[in-house]
Nucleic acid binder design. Structure first.
Lengths: 166, 166
DNA sequence: GGGCTGGTTCAAAAAAAATTGAACCCGGAT
DNA sequence: ATCCGGGTTCAATTTTTTTTGAACCAGCCC
């Protein structure tokens, strides 16, 4: 059994700074710090890392790490690759901004927008049932406005993708 | 002293639904629920409302309401208008998506990006001090990548603004 | 001045979100 | 069949964020 490459247990100054930068960075997207840390250390690592490496180097629990990796995988922000020890799963960061943003839109933004539209539909029904025509008219205006917003949001996504296509 | 128009203390079905829709909606932008509720009730109200109206109708504290109004004002999401009682401050929702997004970019996104850039600069200095040329080269690549990302983000903001300009 | 009312501030409390760690599952080696 | 180690799950705990409410300030009227 090859005593597989023992990664340094402490982060270099640069690694620390970068990990912390990402940790804060992902918060604007509403993601937990640990996700940023994991992505960050993978981003700055020259070779792929396995779960245990992350646990040791970032000093976070196995649980968090496992969950973080799952999320990052579904976002398409990291990918699984082969590594020195055949029975572990190794990961490396995907560096295409387009892909990261795309994953975020697909997994976080779109679902919200969708459920919002559904709720809006239900509100529309209530509006139809409003007695007072003046009030109904007003509510209808507002609902229409929201529908327009939703449509604009949907328009923006593909545009974003295109602009980020280098 | 005119017993100023006593607004209904309970929200109609439509109002409730809409307020709750906004409450959830703003969370994708990482803002607290109360902010969404305040904006929501203003959005669906036919006349401007004052702080006390919001407290009564949304059943949230004066403190939250005051803070929420402040935030919404600095985001440019609501504006102060005249109302029946001259010594209160009344507010109404601004309905231009462009303005809402613009305020959010200006107040929340840009500052983050800016501080991120500063931190990145400091990381760059550390990279310059790296001994091993191979490692330095690699780090440099990564820092460059991040700088490119940052530039792309800045490019996107004005684009967004333009697309949302109806 | 003193009382009133609308609004702000901020420490303390409550609520929500993230993290931990122990139990568990699974596949391969023994 | 059992053991071992990597990985996942999830209830309990910790941390962070949001909300509350009481103290306070400012302008106005008497």
């Amino acid at each position: 059994m090859p005593d597989s490459a023992p990664k340094s247990e402490v982060l270099s100054e640069i690694e620390q700074q970068l990990v912390s930068l990402f940790a804060d960075g992902v918060r604007v997207a509403g993601l937990p710090k640990s996700i940023g840390e994991i992505y960050g250390i993978l981003f700055i690592s020259r070779e792929p890392l396995a779960l245990d490496d992350l646990v040791v180097r970032l000093q976070i629990s196995k649980g968090s790490t496992s969950q973080g990796l799952k999320m990052l995988r579904t976002l398409g922000a990291i990918r699984e690759v082969e590594g020195p020890d055949a029975r572990r799963n190794y990961f490396e960061a995907d560096l295409e901004l387009k892909k990261l943003v795309g994953g975020f839109i697909r997994e976080q933004l779109r679902p919200h927008l969708k459920s919002g539209d559904e709720r809006l539909k239900r509100i529309e029904d209530h509006v139809k049932a409003e007695e007072d025509p003046e009030v109904r008219e007003f509510y209808d205006l507002r609902v229409k406005k929201l529908e327009r917003w939703s449509k604009q949001a949907r328009l923006i996504f593909p545009l974003l993708q295109r602009v980020l296509g280098e």
